[in-house]
Design a protein around this nucleic acid. Structure first.
Lengths: 218, 218
DNA sequence: ATTGTTATTTGCAAATTACATTTAAGTATG
DNA sequence: CATACTTAAATGTAATTTGCAAATAACAAT
C-alpha cells in the first residue's frame, strides 16, 4: 500500500447570507494558530472516525459555527498544494452554503462582510471566496438557488431583490415575475399580504411541487 | 496538530472521446489489486513530493495512461468515505477530460464504451461516471466545450453531431449554425473543403479570438 | 376625497428560436 | 453529357421569449 506522507485533509465553507439587501459572507475570527485572530472561513480537519464523508464534515463544521444545518449546502471545489497551509501539503474540500439572515442575526461569534468588501483572508480563502461567488452568480442565472437566502415567506419584491443582488445586475420586474411564476417553484399564500403605506404585497412560499427547487430552471 | 489517522488521497479521471459518432468513455483494465483485471477509470494516489497540486496529479495519471496531456481537463467532484475503497477511508478528487478520438486511436492499453453501455465499475467509479456525464451534458448546452472532442479541423456537421451526441438531444441545423457562427468561436479555413459524392463541406478551426473558448456561450 | 407610494398587470416592439423549404455543389450513373 | 442523387448551406416565416413602457390597483396618510 502507500507509505508516502499523506496530505492533510480539511474542509472549508463559505457561508452566504443577504443582509441589508447585500450579498454578504459570514466570517469569524480564528481561535487557534495559524493565523489566530484573523477573519477566515469556517473550516476544520476531516475526522475519519466521526465523518461518514466530507459533506458530513462540512456540516459538522457549519453546525459548530452557527448551531444548525444550512438550508443549502453544495460542494464547491477542492483546493490543494503545499503553499495553501503553512502546516504542509494539504487538500481542502471547499463547500458553500446559503443561509437566511434571520437565522443567524444576533449570533455574536460571526461577522458579515458584503462580498465586494471582504478583507484579505489567510490560507487560500480569498480564492475560495472568489470561486464561491462566481459559482453562486452563475447558478443564480439559470436556477432558483437564491430562494434559499430567503425566509420561508417572502414577497415577489424580496425575491426580485435577492436575485439582483446575487447576480449583480438589474432584472426587469415584469419579465422576472413571469419567468418565476411560469416555473411553479413558488406559490402565493392566499390571504397573506405584507402591509404598509401602499398596496399590500402578496406573500409567497416555496411550492410543494418544488421539493428540489434547485433543479428547476428559472 | 493532527494525530488522527489520515484518509488516503487519490485522483480519478473520466476520459471522454467521440468514436463512431458516439460519446464514449475510455477505460482500461486495472493492473493491481484491488479489483485487478477489472475495467476502471484511470486513477492513482496523490504524491506529495512530485505533484504540486491535485490537478497535476490528475495530469500525471492521464499522461501515464495515454502518453500526452488531455486537451481539456476539469475538476469534477470530490468523493469520499469509508465505503468507496476497500483499503480504507479515502478521498478521491475526480476529474474529467475530453480527448479527440484520433489522438488515442490505436492505443492498445485502452478500451472505449459508449456512455450508455459502460460496464459495472469497481470502487464508486460508476457514480463518478454518472456525475461526469451529467456535468458534460450540462456544460455542452451553454458553452462550447464539445469542441475539445474534435480534431483541429472539422466541418459544421462534425460539430453539430458532436453536440447532439454530448447533449443527447436533436438540435436544429440552421439555428445551430447561426448560434455558433454568431459567437466567433470558430472560423472557416478558406479554400479547405471535405470532398465526397456531394456538395463539399467547409472546414473550420477554433477561432484565434476564442483562446479560451470554454468561457464563451454557445 | 386627494395624494403618494408601491404592487401588479397589460400591451407591444425587438430579439431569439424552431421549423420547413429552397438553393448550391459536387459525384455517380447510364 | 444530361440526369439523378446526396449532402451542404442559405433563406423565409411562424412561434416563442424577452425587454421596455405604460396603465391600473390597493392601500395609508393627509
Amino acid at each position: 500500500m502507500e507509505t508516502d506522507p499523506k496530505p492533510l485533509v480539511m474542509v472549508d465553507a463559505a457561508l452566504f447570507t443577504i443582509r441589508n439587501q447585500q450579498l454578504c459572507l459570514i466570517l469569524s475570527r480564528r481561535k487557534e494558530p495559524p493565523f489566530e485572530g484573523a477573519f477566515a472561513l469556517s473550516g476544520g480537519f476531516v475526522h475519519v472516525q466521526e465523518d461518514s464523508d466530507t459533506e458530513m464534515a462540512a456540516r459538522r463544521v457549519i453546525r459548530h459555527k452557527i448551531g444548525f444545518d444550512a438550508p443549502y449546502l453544495e460542494q464547491l471545489f477542492t483546493f490543494s498544494g503545499a503553499a495553501r497551509d503553512p502546516r504542509g501539503w494539504s487538500v481542502s474540500i471547499a463547500y458553500y452554503a446559503l443561509i437566511p439572515w434571520a437565522l443567524v442575526e444576533g449570533n455574536s461569534s460571526i461577522s458579515t462582510f458584503p462580498v465586494e468588501e471582504v478583507p484579505a483572508l489567510p490560507f487560500d480563502h480569498g480564492q475560495i471566496v472568489a470561486k464561491a461567488v462566481e459559482r453562486l452568480r452563475g447558478k443564480a442565472t439559470y436556477s432558483s438557488l437564491p430562494i434559499f437566502l430567503l425566509p420561508a415567506e417572502f414577497t415577489m419584491n424580496d425575491l426580485h431583490q435577492i436575485y439582483e443582488q446575487t447576480i449583480g445586475t438589474r432584472l426587469d420586474k415584469a419579465s422576472f415575475r413571469h419567468k418565476i411564476l411560469e416555473q411553479d417553484i413558488i406559490e402565493p399564500i392566499t390571504g397573506h399580504f405584507r402591509v404598509g403605506a401602499h398596496r399590500p404585497a402578496q406573500f409567497y412560499r416555496l411550492s410543494s411541487k418544488a421539493l428540489t427547487p434547485f433543479e428547476r430552471k428559472i
